Amino acid sequence: MRKWIPLLLIIFALGYSIFKYVEKKQEAEKANTTYASTLSKMGLQEGDQAPNLDLLTLNGEKVKIPLSGNKPTVLNFWATWCPPCKEEIPVLEEFQKEHSDKVSVIGVADYIGEKKDKNFVKNFATKHGITYQVLLDEKGENFSKYGVLTIPTTYFIDQNGKIIYKKLGPLEKKDFDLLLK
């Protein structure tokens, strides 16, 4: 009987370790879900009126873009250094090519994080085959107006300037179904 006591203690310790590991993993998942939920509730939300944009073109010209009275707009906040932003470029590009007559696609680049180098962003856009409109947020004011805390963040805006969808993270083809209804 005494021979079994060390084995039972080892089995008990192993079981307890596994239990604690699973418990810790579940807590981490809950924290991540809470964090994502909190982020999604910050900034502009579905139903809000989209503020007009004050941006720079890749040629350095200042432009003001009203988001009402036009066709619907996909407004994508991104940066060249962001891997998920790079992942969604083909999805945005394909959508732009298929629906440019009905919907505007605007990519708003994080100019502050791009070392204030228009040519860097321009070369990035060319290298990645981006044909949709890419504009620069010179001072981060548009990121602030929209409450963008994580990138990519994308807003679908109807022709009246109302936000109808907000997506944190990279877009997928299925996300565009809502805009095309």
Score class of each variant (00 low, 15 high):
123 N>D: 10
56 L>K: 11
65 I>W: 03
47 G>L: 03
66 P>D: 06
115 K>Q: 13
62 K>R: 13
45 Q>W: 05
62 K>E: 14
63 V>P: 00
103 V>Q: 00
60 G>V: 03
85 C>V: 00
145 K>E: 07
135 L>M: 15
133 Q>T: 10
152 P>V: 10
172 E>C: 06
62 K>Q: 13
139 K>T: 15
88 E>D: 04
41 K>V: 11
74 V>S: 02
117 D>P: 01
65 I>S: 08
119 N>I: 13
67 L>F: 09
60 G>H: 05
80 T>R: 12
143 F>S: 10
181 K>L: 11
82 C>L: 03
164 I>S: 05
98 E>G: 04
59 N>S: 12
96 Q>T: 11
140 G>K: 07
67 L>R: 02
69 G>S: 06
98 E>R: 08
180 L>K: 14
171 L>A: 11
95 F>H: 02
177 D>C: 11
84 P>M: 03
171 L>C: 12
47 G>P: 03
163 I>R: 01
99 H>E: 04
100 S>W: 12
131 T>I: 10
64 K>Y: 12
105 V>F: 00
121 V>T: 10
157 I>V: 15
47 G>K: 09
124 F>P: 01
67 L>H: 02
111 Y>R: 06
96 Q>L: 09
142 N>G: 08
98 E>L: 11
99 H>F: 07
150 T>N: 13
107 G>R: 05
172 E>H: 14
103 V>H: 04
153 T>Q: 10
44 L>E: 00
127 K>W: 04
167 K>M: 05
162 K>Q: 13
159 Q>Y: 15
156 F>M: 12
152 P>D: 07
94 E>W: 09
62 K>T: 14
180 L>V: 11
77 F>S: 04
73 T>I: 13
119 N>T: 15
62 K>I: 10
49 Q>D: 09
42 M>Y: 09
132 Y>G: 04
156 F>I: 12
44 L>C: 00
72 P>F: 04
60 G>F: 08
100 S>G: 14
102 K>C: 03
172 E>W: 09
102 K>I: 00
70 N>S: 14
46 E>L: 08
68 S>Y: 09
148 V>P: 08
134 V>E: 03
133 Q>D: 13
109 A>H: 06
79 A>L: 07
137 D>P: 01
48 D>W: 02
172 E>S: 15
149 L>K: 13
46 E>C: 06
123 N>L: 06
126 T>F: 13
